[in-house]
Every structure is written in C-alpha cells, then in structure tokens.
Simulated scan of single mutants.
Amino acid sequence: MTDDNSQPRFTRRRALTAGGVALGGLALGNATVLAQNDGGNMRTYRVTVANLTRGQPFTPPAVALHRPSVEVFSVGDPANEATKEIAENGNLDPLSTLISETNAIRGSAVAQGPLVPEADPGQTGLPYFTELQVSADASATKLTFISMLVGTNDGFVGLDTVDLPTEVNESKTLYANGYDAGTEQNTEQFGDLVPPAKTLILGGQPEGTGQSNPDIAEDDVIRPHPGIQGVGNLPPSVYDWREPAAVVHVERIEPQ
C-alpha cells in the first residue's frame, strides 16, 4: 500500500440521489433488520464505523451479531454469494437473505448511506463515519462487519467474527483491513467498476457497468487486498490506502 499520513447498496443496476451523487440502491434500510429473541436478556450495542482511507469510499456498512457458529467470510476460503455481491457490486440482497435464513445470526443493521474519506476529495458532503444501534439476545457473542471498497473490482473492508463486549458500558476499538474477494480480476478500469467509484472521489460524469463481466471473473479465495497498482484508470496517489482501512468502535449500552 502507498504510505499515507492523512488518517482521522451500491448496485450497478439501480440508483438514488444522495448529496448530488448517483449512488446505488440499498437492499436494506438504516435500522436493525433482524433481532431474534431467545426469550429475554436482549443486549444493545452502539457500533461506530469510520473510514480511515484517503481515497476509498465504503458502501453503507453492514454489521451482524451472531453465534460463534456463523462465518460470513473467512480469509483463505472462497467468497460466498453474499460476500461476492458486496465486494463486486455493493449488493446487499444476498446478505439480507443470508441473515433472514440463518437462525444463528441474531441481529443486524446497515447504515443509511456510504462513507467517504474524511477529506471528502469528491466534495460529496457525505460523512466519513456512521453510528449504528443493533440488538440481539445473549446468545450472540460475535460481530461481523462488511462494506465494499467502492474504488476496487472486488475489494471489501471487514471484521470476521470478533468478540462483542459483555458488560454494559464496556467497549472495544477494532481495526479492519481491506480484502480481495478473489472473484474478479483487478483491472482498475472505471468501465469494470460501479459508477460511484469515480464520482465519489474524482467527481464528474459517472462511468461503469450495470453488470459483472464474466470475462474478468476469478475463481480464487479471499486474501489481503494488494491495493491499487495503477494498472488502469485509478491513480494510486488518489485511490490507494494503507491499512487499517477502517476503525470500528463497539460499545454495549443500556437498551432504549
């Protein structure tokens, strides 16, 4: 990654307008989308996600509270459909389906909109951090976080099955790295990326495609992202980042 001292559902098919920038439609809203109850003892958490990169927007961050048996993604393994769709298209629909069909996922939430770097190079007016509140019963002891690195072919930032705080007012600060889903070649061409990859950082007219291109598909595994190499349209001086890509602060709070 290029060293940088500045720290502090996009789909390819549907769009909405936020802050004057064309953004992809969200599959999930800005509130808890699942909260399963084992008969009591509900726990509530405040999850704050901040973008630490200088040139990578995030799609609206999604978090899930779950039992230890759940693994939304795992480095070294092939990406499942939910991770692939987030990493390639910012599409949360498969994740929504996974949540609704997986009893061991006890609570989840997704932010209202995308996060841009704190310096906001595209002058979008969008925030660089967001706060989510999500509840689940006491059987959920783990948290997973995932969001697309918008200026990549199939990159995402995430935390895989980390421990939740156990006591009220207890908190944890966690750092999340960028990963390559291994499902699409890193062409770094705007034509192969979602249109907001250009508009959220460089501004101007959007470029991109409405569908994944099978000609650049990969059959690989999730691995640390190599960063922006400058092989296409993305200047590394703008789009590259150093790890960690995000900071996630998790606090158990009194139910409201």
Rank of each mutant, 00 (worst) to 15 (best):
S237C: 03
T124D: 03
A15C: 10
P8M: 12
G113Q: 11
T152H: 08
D160M: 12
D192C: 09
S96M: 12
I86C: 07
D154S: 13
V47Y: 01
S212E: 10
S6N: 14
Q229E: 12
G40R: 08
N177V: 05
V21P: 09
R252F: 03
A64C: 14
R43I: 01
V221H: 02
G19V: 05
G182L: 00
D160S: 15
D163G: 09
R67S: 14
E101F: 11
D163L: 13
T152G: 07
Q189W: 12
G122N: 03
G39C: 04
A176D: 00
D192G: 07
E243N: 11
D38V: 08
D120N: 02
T187Y: 00
F129Y: 13
N169P: 06
D219Y: 12
V248P: 06
V49K: 02
Q205E: 15
T199N: 06
A197D: 06
Q56G: 05
T199F: 08
G155P: 03
A119N: 12
P236Q: 00
F129T: 14
P196C: 04
G24C: 07
S135H: 04
T59P: 02
S212N: 09
N169E: 13
L23Y: 10
S74C: 13
P78G: 01
T48N: 07
D215V: 12
D3Y: 14
V168E: 09
V194Y: 08
R14E: 15
K172V: 06
D137S: 08
A246T: 07
H66I: 08
E254L: 12
A181P: 10
L149W: 11
E81F: 11
E118L: 10
Q36R: 15
V250E: 00
T53I: 02
P196F: 04
E85T: 12
Q56L: 01
T59Y: 08
S96A: 15
E118P: 00
D77Q: 15
L202W: 00
I105E: 07
E167K: 14
E184K: 13
D240P: 02
T59V: 05
Q189H: 13
V75F: 01
V75E: 09
R9P: 12
H225I: 04
N51Q: 04
G125L: 02
L34P: 00
D154V: 11
Y175S: 11
A217V: 03
V134A: 01
I105T: 06
